[in-house]
Nucleic acid binder design. Structure first.
Lengths: 347, 347
DNA sequence: CTGAAAGCGCTTACAG
DNA sequence: CTGAAAGCGCTTACAG
């Protein structure tokens, strides 16, 4: 049990004023004479008074907190660096603004919607982040129905009443394809994220467009989940094809790292026999041999900006959409010129 | 703006009873006749009444939330799988208990202490998790001073008033060393986490004890941070030594993965020239070539149990300490018998 | 500039 | 079994 903490009433008594005046003084509102204000502040200091956010929350009908709901299978951690970085960026803004982050991790879509709803009806948060957008994303309508401010990462497909903070990932994919094309690759494949996810299908489309723009034949595309295990399977399938690709563009780093493992396991030398690119710039990819060429996204900034935008929405402003600097391709060792075309198939 | 939501007063009016009785009925407390209770519940349902947690929090002096503070450099994400899994486990318990998780991510120790303090004095949480214990960990005393229930992951060194939920990681390290010794390795090194962290120094001690128990000469130990980049540097140093090890036991997976990269880059074949083991069982390690032998810890269960224990503490019970099943060694491809001893040094 | 009062939406003794 | 009232710790009109 914490010992009973002083309340505003104790401060008022000590300063010899009313509770109301204490509140005014503490919140720097006009209408308090300098001397009285000083006396009140002094009393609060002496008593070690700390505002009780719960009481404040009830009075002003604000939670002073933001909600983030993450959907993922708890048993399968892909080592995806996005959320840790994103959250770190969010926190950087929140701490100084006196806000907190309420985090929900849920296993599936039904639980996800329920989590958003509960966060809001419980009055736990004043606004929510909507990440990992999907086609026909039910969360937009839900947030609108609940009347809660929200910010989306990227633009949803349907019209949305919420500001979007976007980072163009297509430029990064295009740069990867161009880089590979420049190295002489023609049979380039893409291991894509699930089509139901906007960034899955958007990166895929970017890949297809970049291939066309480079004058290359339509590349092979394997759609799968964003997990390492799926990247491995997709790679195995691609390498088993008679027209096996000489380069593979992966939609994220865990898939690419697993793909690298599969290729090496099959006896291919990366990058000489097969070039590989990832996406999202995981820390570990930099230390592999060969180090992973990837598309770097600044998830920390994304989190910080999204938090700022959400806070402004909550404050009643209408922030409008924000475009972050596009993701950029970071060539490392896993991409190289095609050596002589080989017809060797993989067992 | 959400439209004004019905309050308990609206329900009372509709049911024709007092607010107090509504509260009793809604909280399933005795002293309400079945018919009245039914009438009240009916009214609440018709009105779509939802409890306002803010008001409840103020009344009962509870936040219905738990706090987790994570310290890490936002720019350096190691792909450490521990926290995502741990949090997923925590959430599994919280959702059903009507509790929420408030997360703080901070860059350094000063900010960490400030974050705990703020979480508690703001009355945002009813209890806190203390993870990544250090020597002379100031957080124990702080939590005690703040009078907030806490649960520690592992046993702090100083006497602690809080229940500990522990997972013996020494058994896993010992198993790794035994495995390597059984394969004929004698020059085994350990890339350790920082000595200031309990699990850093504990794993190191476990390594040293296991070496002695196996009748091997004291192994080389390099102490460093838990990041991939540090694992890489430590490995480079070890491999440059004239008496370079034939096996390296790493204190976590990101370090081991980076070490694998360094070894391969130096022209060593893993596991033939160098065996490698990790710790924590990251998803991606399984898909490398060679796949990473590691020590698997069940972070999801750890989170779930810690949450349960903390909830019981908050409820006024005295849970006592809990020991989880020990971490276990998972041999994969990165460990193999020593081939002929080689004196080849690495450039 | 200052005070006294009502209110936020709940819970909880205290009486009947 | 039920009601009326006070209280949690703040904020905020409303009067003076």
């Amino acid at each position: 049990m914490p010992t009973a903490r002083p309340t505003i009433a104790d401060v008022a008594q000590r300063a010899g004023v009313s509770k109301g005046l204490v509140s005014f003084a503490l919140n720097d509102r006009p209408g308090v004479s300098p001397q009285t204000r000083e006396r009140i502040l002094e009393a609060a200091r002496e008593l070690g008074w700390q505002p009780n956010l719960r009481a404040r929350a009830l009075s002003v009908d604000r939670a002073f907190a933001l909600g983030l709901v993450i959907m993922r299978d708890p048993e399968i951690i892909t080592g995806d660096p996005f959320y840790p970085s994103f959250i770190a960026g969010v926190e950087r803004e929140l701490a100084s603004a006196g806000q907190a982050l309420v985090l929900s991790v849920v296993p599936d879509e039904a639980a996800e919607l329920a989590a958003y709803r509960k966060l809001v009806t419980d009055r736990r948060v004043d606004g929510v982040f909507v990440t990992d957008l999907r086609h026909d994303d039910a969360r937009i309508a839900l947030a609108a129905e609940l009347g809660v401010p929200a910010v989306t990462l990227g633009h949803p497909e349907a019209p949305s009443p919420f500001p979007a903070v976007s980072m163009d990932d297509r430029a990064g994919i295009a740069a990867a394809v161009d880089h590979l094309a420049g190295l002489g690759h023609r049979r380039i494949a893409h291991v894509a994220g699930p089509d139901r996810m906007l960034h899955g299908s958007r990166r895929r489309r970017a890949f297809e467009e970049a291939m066309a723009a480079a004058g290359l034949p339509a590349g092979m595309v394997v759609e799968t989940e964003f997990r390492a295990v799926d990247g491995a399977r997709a790679t195995r399938d691609l390498l088993a094809r008679p027209d096996r690709p000489t380069a593979i563009v992966y939609a994220n780093d865990p898939m690419a790292i697993a793909g690298l493992g599969i290729a090496q396991r099959a006896g291919l030398r990366v990058p000489h026999d097969l070039s590989i690119t990832g996406f999202d710039g995981s820390d570990v990819g930099e230390h592999l041999f060969p180090s992973l060429s990837t598309v770097a996204t600044d998830a920390v900034s994304w989190g910080a900006v999204a938090a700022r935008v959400l806070l402004r929405s909550i404050a009643g402003e209408e922030p409008g959409d924000t475009d972050l600097p596009p993701a950029r391709f970071v060539p490392r060792e896993s991409t190289a010129p095609v050596t002589e075309p080989t017809d060797r198939t993989v067992p």
